[in-house]
Design a protein around this nucleic acid. Structure first.
Lengths: 344, 344
DNA sequence: CTGAAAGCGCTAACAA
DNA sequence: TTGTTAGCGCTTTCAG
């Protein structure tokens, strides 16, 4: 086979750097410099190259660039779930930052399964992404090893209770649990229950519950009832779980839920079943999703900033990539507060 | 510089096919065949290669494979929004299919802006993805051209009212609008209003509304009031828009909303403001998100299958890629039905 | 500031 | 069934 001497071989195919080089009478490498905004390019040369490129409809091939340059302009993002608004909001935040750059998001959904997360990490790292954003601080040993050894920045989001492998942006779930316990006790509640779901995967919800229970004990009012459902969190599950819990423990005067979806279900159940909220019973959630404000009674919740968490994670990643993270902290704890509504 | 004769150069780096080849005493291309499950590989050779690979911890580099093989194992997905559950559900469906394959999802969010969509398409096509999934049938001329000319399969999702460029999976929004008009008229409504949002970007919502209005005219009961908000759809916007519409048109006895988020807002507003739903006023949405069942009154809505739409889109894409789509239709219209709740 | 040479790690095409 | 050769389209040296 004759070697590719001239770009005219590539008839019909997508134009390459060689086409641009031939047409502009400049070397390939100089063209490359133009498209990468590399330094040391005269504006005359730049203009010639750009003209040729646009005449040809040339677009750089990022795959070739990635192979030669040993890094793709991809950022791998692994989220545990798409079934409530939390992670879509985080993704939206990440995208809002990344879409302004040449980086693209590759998505993996782990379904709250650390084994699935592991294979996603393995898989996505093979692409040589520019960086990785994963959820939580808990991973399998193999995942942890891969995340530690890979050269690129890794941001662990959602959780600030612990030390990230590399970079971290999250909230303190321990603090969240404690704050809510204090809030309920301060408002005079005595028989307090807890409802969780999804077999308490995300370790984060366990952290919240344990801190919640610990603080209740400290305040002399230990948890009166607890119910952890097996299914995925949802409004519907919150309804049925609340009903089930109140059947066995009709005297509860407060319930803290693992998240707002469950709590909204609880609220709807209580309203439908004739409970007086908050007089009979107080209800509180976690996250502060948009829906809590739209309820007939505004749900008390702990507000977290998911979109902002995505933004910060992406910015931290970019900053590290660009070496702008030198003095700055590698872990960011996002604010958190009890947002009192009408249900406590 | 001396050329790379032996894999021992790559000290510390990730192992490559050459390392595996050296260690197993087999040629690189044979190793390559093993990892690609290519035909004509003896099981003895396969075993040797696999042993060497696992001893070395070798993982194929998909970037190099993509350059040499002229296609990445990426599927580009462009959705207009992450701010309600609709597209996350679609993504979840897509992922459920793709995660079982070697394909990965690259995500773009267009924010309902066709110009943004265009630049995402341009950008993502440059990666040579295996296929593309985009939302809607309406695109800029340039987008349409790129989607037409690119060699890979393109699935346009969400909308079945029109002819997809290549492949399509969606529902008929025209039918949806007509069905709801019939439903409201059949239930005796006489002064019917409509509330939309987001300046009616997605053309799909316009199709629904126009079909709705057309059918009302046909039935002799033309639309009594219409309000299109500028902001993004949300429960909160549904509340305020409903209030605003009912202030100017207090005699409405039904409102059809562009989607469930708005309709739930309307429901909450009406309940809070003392309207009797559905006696005073009927309310109906579109989508059938999980939340409609969790409301104190179950919202009447038009049920669509978003997760399933994602599944079908991904399956159609894979089928086309594998040449299994020959006889089968290239456009799939998903079912749709009015799901009567307590609000009509 | 510009360019020539030599790969990045893999696979298509062709031989054996 | 296995191997040889020649790139994929770009970027990294290193020289001018």
């Amino acid at each position: 086979m004759v070697s590719n001497q001239s770009a005219s071989d590539n008839v019909g195919g997508r134009p390459t750097l060689r086409h641009v080089a031939e047409r502009s009478g400049v070397s390939e490498i100089s063209c490359s410099r133009v498209f990468r905004d590399a330094p040391n390019v005269s504006s005359a040369l730049r203009a010639k190259v750009l003209a040729a490129a646009s005449a040809l409809g040339y677009t750089p091939n990022p795959v070739a660039g990635a192979l030669a340059g040993n890094a793709t302009d991809l950022v791998a993002v692994i989220v545990p779930s798409m079934s409530n608004s939390v992670f879509p909001e985080v993704l939206d935040g990440i995208d809002s930052v990344l879409s302004g750059t040449r980086y693209r998001t590759v998505l993996g959904i782990s379904h709250y399964d650390l084994q699935t997360e592991e294979s996603l990490v393995r898989d996505l790292i093979a692409w040589n992404p520019r960086g990785l954003i994963v959820s939580g601080l808990e991973h399998t040993g193999a995942t942890r090893q891969m995340l530690t050894r890979c050269k690129m920045p890794v941001v662990e989001i959602m959780d600030a209770d612990g030390t990230p492998i590399d970079l971290g942006v999250g909230v303190s779930h321990t603090r969240a649990g404690r704050l809510m316990a204090q809030h309920l006790v301060a408002s005079g509640r005595q028989r307090i229950g807890y409802i969780g779901a999804w077999g308490e995967r995300p370790a984060r919800s366990v952290k919240r519950r344990l801190a919640f229970e610990r603080e209740l004990v400290r305040q002399g009012i230990p948890l009166a009832a607890r119910r952890i459902e097996a299914g995925d969190s949802s409004v519907a599950l919150g309804q049925s779980a609340t009903e089930a819990l109140l059947v066995t423990q009709p005297d509860l005067d407060a319930i803290f839920y693992a998240n707002d979806d469950l709590a909204i279900g609880g609220l709807l159940y209580c309203m439908g079943a004739g409970y007086q909220v908050p007089d009979n019973i107080a209800l509180a959630g976690f996250n502060g999703i948009a829906l809590v404000d739209a309820m007939p009674l505004r749900l008390t919740t702990i507000q977290t900033a998911r979109y902002e968490m995505g933004v910060q994670a992406a910015q931290m990643l970019l900053a590290d990539l660009e070496g702008r993270l030198d003095g700055r902290p590698r872990k960011l704890t996002m604010p958190l507060k009890v947002r009192q509504g009408d249900t406590t």
